[in-house]
Write a protein that binds this DNA or RNA. Structure first.
Length: 476
RNA sequence: GGCGACAUAGCCAAGUGGCAAGGCAGAGGACUGCAAAUCCUUUAUCCCCGGUUCGAAUCCGGGUGUCGCCUCCA
């Protein structure tokens, strides 16, 4: 039984998909006018883990995340760069794909673009006009909030409260100050499409309603994004979608908390935006993933280089235990487990159960990681014991970690650039120096290999080596 | 003005009624030729003041502080 906090009710609620065994998730994606930043990354990483976890729990998940490729910011950027809006979108979608891949984020099942769903958008607007929830004024179409009684349900505010706090300019063509644009009349030199109301382009909110329902049906199981989308974006999506269909738009509204940078909200005006593009130059992007997962998704978190380094070291600890397991597994045989080994296998089982329990409870990734650390300690203790280890004890533990990696996705799989034969030769030579107690010569070999990114470790079971790839050295 | 979040060790961070998880850093020890890795030991008046309760970090009331949303925003 998986529980998720639902913004619309303010409670954790059991996930009950529309169709048993299937889950449709729609997450609001980026406006592709620039590189995305570490705050955006928090949302993308959360939804990546959510869909991976639901998949692990046996659901058939369809995950949709849009690209907003037409709006004011896109148009502005195209002018600045002296290229078309389409070209801006192509550049930053490609960058998005590269940067998310570096963060271990899997591609969604669908990444629809607003400009490729104009017919669906127009159809939805027409339904709203037919239902007397939208009106056309001189080629602009607005949503009539006063005609939709549930307006404000998500942000828990009524219309009067919203108006009193609003800092918007009054557009006198609107029936109500909070009415928002579904369709914007064409302006000179901007991309536009034919519609029943004349040439124009979609408003910001309508694309998500249109595309989510097109791919996932009229009631989504899970919809969400960053907390700042609650109002107005998701509020407006509810109005548009429910206004058209008369059905609940999403069963679960999931919103991810902010990630601040050095205790400040990131914003262009403060000039403190850290993009993943930039982060990738100075640190391991997977350390950011680990850092983000080490706190609960609804709590605000603060980012700094220091915290990222702490996270990188913790992540390294888990990667090391996996490395330790793999290394030892190649040197041991099967046998019947003794009492202490049975106790370890019992612990493995209880860790598995505990991990599922904490993840089922509103995706508590912080506790889940603690479980992985707990098992790591017991495993390391076992690997240290002089009586030796058994394959049929080590293997299930390694399998567990591999399973967990399909959810959390921060494990490293290093490969060596140096030829293994050459390496074995150097190790053998160093062993000879060590036998002769020629420590300086032995250490020279170790230092030389380290410069090439290969770490030698002397263990009671013999010398072993591992590769540290350049971009994966943690923070640099 | 309206709505809301957060405050737990040097740092990060779980825990929402029953002896305060986990990670990072520090100190001491074991192991090691030295390293690396690992293990052991060690570190908390849970922001303040009241209340409810046999029992509160957890529930209620009141403070204080930090921050967010109500405008484009993840």
């Amino acid at each position: 039984m998986i529980k998720l906090y639902n913004t619309i009710t303010g409670r954790k609620e059991t996930l009950k998909p529309v169709t048993d065994g299937k889950v449709g998730i729609y997450a609001c994606g980026p406006t592709v006018y620039d590189y995305f930043h570490i705050g955006n990354a928090r949302v993308f990483i959360f939804f990546d883990v959510l869909r991976r976890y639901l998949n692990y729990r046996g659901y058939n998940v369809t995950f949709v995340q849009n690209y907003t490729d037409i709006d004011d910011k896109m148009i502005k950027r195209a002018r600045e760069m002296g290229i078309s809006v389409k070209e801006v979108a192509d550049i930053f979608i490609k960058a998005y794909e590269e940067d998310t891949a570096a963060l271990g984020i899997l591609p969604a099942d669908h990444h629809p673009r607003a400009t490729e769903h104009i017919p669906q958008i127009i159809g939805l607007i027409q339904r709203l006009i037919d239902n007397n929830l939208a009106y056309d004024v001189e080629g602009d179409v607005f949503f009539d909030v006063a005609a939709f009684p549930d307006y404000g349900i998500l942000s828990q505010q009524n219309l009067e409260e919203l108006v009193s706090g609003a800092r918007v300019e009054i557009d006198h063509r609107k029936r109500h100050p909070m009415d928002f644009a579904l369709w914007k009349k064409e302006k000179e030199g901007e991309p536009s499409w034919e519609s029943p109301w004349g040439r124009g382009r979609p408003g910001w909110h309508i694309e998500c309603s249109a595309m989510s329902m097109y791919y996932l049906g009229e009631t989504l199981d899970i919809h969400g994004g960053g907390q700042d989308l609650i109002f107005p974006h998701h509020e407006n999506e509810i109005a548009q979608s429910q206004g058209a269909t008369g059905k609940p738009f999403a069963r679960h509204w999931v919103h991810v908390g902010y990630l601040n940078l050095e205790h400040e909200k990131m914003s262009k005006s403060l000039g403190n935006v850290l993009t993943i593009r930039e982060l990738r130059k100075i640190a391991d992007p997977l350390a950011l993933r680990f850092f983000i997962l080490s706190a609960h998704y609804r709590n605000p978190i603060n980012f700094s280089r220091e915290y990222l380094e702490q996270a990188a070291k913790g992540m390294e600890r888990l990667n090391t235990v996996i490395y330790n397991l793999k290394d030892r597994l190649g040197r041991v045989d099967t046998g019947s487990p003794d009492d202490r080994e049975n106790a370890l296998l019992d612990l493995l089982q209880s860790c598995r159960e505990k991990l599922i329990a904490v993840m089922d409870d509103d995706l508590n990734t912080a506790e889940a990681l603690a479980v992985l650390f707990e098992l790591a300690k017991a495993t390391n203790t076992y690997l240290n014991r002089p009586e030796g280890q058994k394959k049929n004890v080590l293997e299930p533990i390694l399998n567990f970690y591999n399973d967990m990696d399909t959810i959390f996705g921060f494990m490293k799989n290093e490969s060596s650039a140096i030829l293994e034969k050459e390496l074995e030769e150097l190790i053998a030579r160093r062993e000879e120096y060590r036998r002769q107690k020629e420590w300086a010569s032995a250490d020279a070999i170790r230092d030389r290999l380290k410069e090439q990114g290969i770490i030698l470790e002397d263990t009671p079971q013999g010398v072993r080596w591992k590769v540290i790839a350049d971009e994966k050295k943690g923070t640099k």
